[in-house]
Design a protein around this nucleic acid. Sequence first.
DNA 1: CGTCCATATGGCATGTTGTGCCAACAAGGC
DNA 2: GCCTTGTTGGCACAACATGCCATATGGACG
Lengths: 227, 227
Amino acid sequence: MCHSGAMCRDLDRLRTLAPVTGRPTLTQRRRDATRLEIARTAAALFAERGAEATTAEEIAAAAGISLRTFYRYFSVKEDAVAPLLAAGGQRWMDLLAESPADVPLREALERSAVESLTPADDAAVEAMYWTRDLLRDPRLDGTWQKVHAGSEERLRGVLAARCPDGVDPLEVRLAAAAATAAIRVALEQWAGSDAAVTGPGSPQDLGGRCMRELTVGLRLWAQPAGD
Amino acid sequence: MCHSGAMCRDLDRLRTLAPVTGRPTLTQRRRDATRLEIARTAAALFAERGAEATTAEEIAAAAGISLRTFYRYFSVKEDAVAPLLAAGGQRWMDLLAESPADVPLREALERSAVESLTPADDAAVEAMYWTRDLLRDPRLDGTWQKVHAGSEERLRGVLAARCPDGVDPLEVRLAAAAATAAIRVALEQWAGSDAAVTGPGSPQDLGGRCMRELTVGLRLWAQPAGD
DNA sequence: CGTCCATATGGCATGTTGTGCCAACAAGGC
DNA sequence: GCCTTGTTGGCACAACATGCCATATGGACG
């Protein structure tokens, strides 16, 4: 998710300073809050006039920060909406990580995917429709793909933690790629349709189907019952 | 692959002017030749100093064209190498398209993938190592992903032509996504290693394995023997 | 051969992008 | 209080990307 070398180093440094408690630093949380606020501002402008017709300066002004600061949070203008696009995937991975280890991986993948694609409240519904608007902006394709590339990489970590040592890394990589592709295709298919946020053709409907089909037959190392 | 609205219209116009013969227009072929030459020039420079440290003006100068013309061929500097990165995938799709319709799809996918990943001559070997260099440049990630997004979309067309009418478009989409992911993961894995261009760990080795695993269990509509 | 039209190219101007650098300032630890 | 660390904004500036126009180039047709 981090592209400029300098900023990468800074962020990594920050992260290592996190206290023993699992919680991130105060400054870090502030950063995230600011980042999210910029993201919302950018999303509103992008949805209104399109990403092409929106300048970085306008986003910065609307968010109440200077242009220079904007570029400290996002190295590319379009990436300003990445936190929003990535939020769903993050939730997915959190659910997956906390799902009990004795449930078969395929099932865990599918269940957490479906759940993360099911809007829990009105805010989540709104977020999905925003996502759809953003997905339809051709200028944001690159960001969308970057987000999934990041997702896939993080998922590799989550899966690796869940499987016995000594498993071929390529297996893990393929599983992560398949699962990520399932989510991506589901959302792209939905974005190209007029389907609502629940019911047939909805993200959770498509997400479940995609995940099922793409992980069928995937040799997922240890199945709990028959290792 | 085409981003600016104006240029898109122009290219489409050109394409519609193509004569009845399957062959593209003369001007079109010239355009492609120029495009490829720019791509090679850019690849050499990117491989030498990295994409970050190479300006569009340098590429243009090295290719013997003006900066303005460069941006008529590629709307983003990094995309200059896209034709090279896409060449392998194009070959793959060509092989697939001309593979007989009575061979099972999974087998056709795997065979053409392996073949397209097997360098036929010294030039092809060189091309693969160039590809590896480019893949290692973080600045070219976006282009790499764009290329695969394009591949996936074209593959959907090829697959749709091969399967009976009335098949759920989502099925086709998933198959295309899985196959494209297989190629992508194989090449990324190879690029992250020091493996040679043949033998274990080579692109064709990994490509075969990835394609097999990701398409196992994929419900690929009509299997020729038991439709 | 000359005319016409479509396309390719280059040069120029210009708005936008993205970054390095510096000075000012807020926050937390000692 | 002080010092360290990190954030912010302003400024300058190179690079990016595009619109516009003037100029070839090259094929089609009379």
